[in-house]
Design a protein around this nucleic acid. Structure first.
Lengths: 300, 300
DNA sequence: TAAAATGATAAGGTCTTCTTATCACCCTGC
DNA sequence: GCAGGGTGATAAGAAGACCTTATCATTTTA
């Protein structure tokens, strides 16, 4: 029906008009003059009507004059699209977007990222943090290449590669009666002032749930939580990784019976390829975290 | 800098997405499936990032999803331009736009056009009429392919091919004293009521000019002019071709001393190619009018 | 009138882009 | 479990697009 115009010959025509001749255009395009002659002839017979006058000079026919602005428009849009796409590729090529839960982001990532950019000095990383739900949504929505989080629920859209296990324990002040215990069972927590926090839902479905249900506080902000614990207002449960080690007056006591842990792992979209940079990051994370499973607290 | 995207592969990508697979798209495009595979691979490495997921199925990568609307936009515009251009070619291919002075348009063109469309039944002709100035402007402005007119002034933009000569004469009613004369000289017109008309300026620069300068009327409309002549109000001068032969009561008497004629010819833009159809028309006109020069009235 | 510059053309090489034939894989149904 | 029909990927070869060098025919310039 309608012919398939290639962009190149259109560009030639524009150059011939703009430069005022085949030779000048050829020089400008780093091509030889016959190349333009032939390309133009090809285009002309594809359109069914000449674009340039036959008489020696590079003058447009009326039809050619009619075509020119359309050619220019088409070439311009082509270049705009092309430039936009490579810009996106190049921007994303050296860039990794990640999301992680705060404990991982603040405890593990600094050293991991520092090692990573030492290995790949040209890559850039953006790290967002938020709760497990947030991380999951970021990955699922494609806003982020990789996520590091605990598995909060199965999702057919997401792949989960377990990296490490993180045992839940009790956090209390150094002068608390639990402070020097090596382990605790849930029953012993009866009667304590238990503060819920963002990680408490990890315990839902375990024997610890009823205990948490009667807790008086629910503090999601870690700074506030630390302050309350240091003030001796109560105790809380946290995964060991989330335990604020910089607070010298707090102690972490692993729990058992039942033993509860969270599984921390790498999340990415299933059936969606990673950029080379993101794949390198995943590789790096698996290498550095894969073996190191926090099972120290697990009862033998 | 930015890669040269060809339209074809973009079209392939769209088809693969729309048809839901390489095979279906290949069938739809009348290509084989490997052709699409390879074209897509080529495009991918030109962009520097894959468009489809590797895993067997024809699923877009996030980058591919980003590209898709831009591809579609570009292909759509390409098709719009392509379709528009060939439509114009096809419309103009079988179409000739002409302009002629009224005498030619009404006296010569009917038979010429009738012969012409008999020779080329597929071609269509538009004929505009107006004075010589109008015809010249139509041709020069490219609004018309060919013009038939007297040469009113040299114009470097226009080519003039003389076709026929048309002698100026006096037109009067059958009962006028000039009516049965075989010839007249300008001097004999002294004292007559002379009506100027649109063709009178053909006489400027000749000995007849002073006579016309003192004329009382200037009638540009041929119908009005005929009415005045038939009413016996006066006489006028006209080229023979413009003499209204359908008016039985009017007579045409050639003038001499000085003999004045207008040169009627074909006008087209210099250095601008004619469409094949217009070239055929020019050929036809030259064949049918070229020999037939109205010299019968010229004094021997 | 000689020289330079224009665009057109011819022959040849290289790269692109198809084709056919085949592979490796996944899913389905018996 | 294991054919059979589906997917897309790959290899080898033919056809064509595209560019180059070399040359021609005109026109313009000096």
């Amino acid at each position: 029906m309608h012919p398939e115009l290639k962009i190149q010959p259109l560009r030639y025509v524009l150059a011939i008009v703009d430069e005022g001749g085949f030779h000048a255009a050829a020089r400008h395009l780093h091509r030889t003059q016959p190349a333009l002659s032939m390309a133009v002839r090809e285009l002309e017979q594809r359109l069914g009507e000449p674009l340039f006058e036959k008489g020696g000079k590079a003058t447009l026919t009326p039809f050619g004059a009619y075509c020119l602005p359309r050619f220019r428009e088409l070439v311009t849009q082509h270049d705009r699209v092309s430039r936009d796409l490579v810009a996106r590729v190049e921007k994303r090529a050296g860039h990794i977007d990640m999301a992680a839960v705060p404990s991982v982001a603040s405890r593990l990532m600094p050293r991991l990222l520092s090692d990573f950019i030492q290995r790949y000095p040209d890559l850039r990383v953006s790290l967002h943090d938020g709760n497990a739900d947030f991380v999951g949504r970021m990955v699922a929505g494609g806003e982020v290449d990789l996520g590091i989080s605990s598995l909060w629920q199965a999702d057919a859209e997401l792949d989960f590669y377990p990296l490490m296990r993180d045992a839940i324990g009790v956090v209390c002040r150094e002068d608390h009666r639990f402070a020097d215990r090596q382990a605790l069972s849930w029953q012993e927590l009866q009667g304590e002032v238990l503060i819920r926090n963002g990680t408490s839902r990890l315990l839902s479905g375990t024997g610890a749930e009823p205990l948490l249900a009667q807790s008086a506080f629910d503090i999601s902000n870690m700074i506030s939580l630390n302050a309350m614990l240091e003030a001796g207002i109560g105790i809380t449960t946290l995964p060991r990784l989330a335990f604020p080690e910089e607070c010298a007056r707090l102690r972490f006591v692993p729990l058992s019976e039942p033993y509860v842990e969270r599984q921390i792992g790498l999340i990415c979209r299933v059936d969606v390829s990673l950029s080379p940079a993101a794949a390198a990051m995943r590789q790096h994370l698996v290498e550095h975290l894969g073996e190191q499973t926090r099972e120290a607290d697990k009862p033998s």
